[in-house]
Amino acid sequence: MAAITGPLSGEAKNTVAEALQGALVDLIDLSLVAKQAHWNLIGPHFRSIHLQLDELTDLARTHMDTIAERAVAIGANPDGRSATVARATKLQQPESGWLEDGKVVATITDLLDGVSKRMHERVRTTEEADPVSQDLIISVAQDVDKQHWMFQAMG
């Protein structure tokens, strides 16, 4: 079976593949952390935060598919396996058990801040190597920044 090739090669392909893989890991784990918080949330602001966590999960899942498909399109293999995500994630994991609503807002705000900074760095590293991938990462950064603002406003 022939390997999939794409429009990039050499260092450009490696740079973009690394940026896309990092974005994929961030997005997969963000969806998992948001869902974990969603299931275990308690407190007087349950309803609004519960719904916002669903929105965040949907956003992460939509973007992770787009990012993974772009990796394939450039001839790289996306790796979304649980062991890979567990080994590579930079996201702080929530505590087990019930999660108080104020603590969830603070935790998610911090996580989104970190994801945003990493996405903005990926925007810079893909600028010359592949503007198409950069555009996709810009879209992720835009949505992550919006979610960061929304969670920050709840705190």
Rank of each mutant, 00 (worst) to 15 (best):
K146S: 09
I67E: 07
Q92I: 14
A68Y: 01
T109D: 02
I74T: 01
V144N: 00
Q92G: 07
E95F: 08
H50S: 01
V132Y: 05
L53A: 05
A17Q: 08
R70Y: 04
K117F: 07
P131E: 09
I28Q: 09
A19V: 08
D110G: 11
S82E: 14
Q147D: 09
D54F: 04
G102H: 14
A60Y: 01
V115I: 06
S48T: 15
D101L: 04
L32D: 14
L24C: 04
L30I: 11
T57G: 06
L30Q: 06
I138L: 13
E128P: 05
A88V: 12
A60E: 02
A37S: 12
S96V: 11
D79H: 06
A34T: 05
I74L: 08
S116F: 02
R122Q: 14
K117E: 11
L136F: 12
V33K: 04
A23G: 13
T62Y: 11
G155D: 00
D130C: 03
S31H: 09
G75K: 00
E69L: 08
D130E: 02
S9E: 13
K35F: 11
E127H: 09
G114A: 02
G155V: 00
L91I: 12
G102A: 15
I74A: 06
D101Y: 03
I137L: 15
R118K: 06
L24M: 08
M64S: 07
Q21F: 07
Q142A: 13
A71Q: 09
G114F: 01
V115F: 01
A19F: 08
N77Q: 12
D58C: 10
F151C: 00
F151R: 00
N40H: 10
E100N: 08
G155E: 00
L59I: 11
V115N: 00
V25P: 07
V85K: 04
T57D: 06
R124D: 15
D29V: 08
A3N: 13
T5V: 14
Q152E: 13
L41N: 06
V72S: 10
S139A: 14
G102E: 15
A141T: 08
I74V: 15
I42H: 10
F46Q: 03
W98I: 13
Q36N: 10
M154W: 09
D145V: 03
W98V: 14
S116Q: 10
D110T: 13
V72Y: 05
T5Q: 12
A37Q: 14
V140D: 03
V85C: 07
K13S: 11
A73I: 07
R122H: 13
D101T: 11
D110Q: 14
T62H: 11
V16N: 03
G155H: 01
R81W: 00
L59Y: 09
E100W: 04
D79P: 01
V104M: 00
S48W: 06
T5N: 13
T107Q: 14
Q36H: 14
S31G: 11
T125R: 09
V115A: 09
G102W: 10
L91G: 03
E69Y: 08
Q93A: 12
M154T: 11
D113I: 07
T109L: 00
V16I: 05
L41S: 07
V72C: 07
A3C: 07
D110L: 06
M154I: 08
A76C: 03
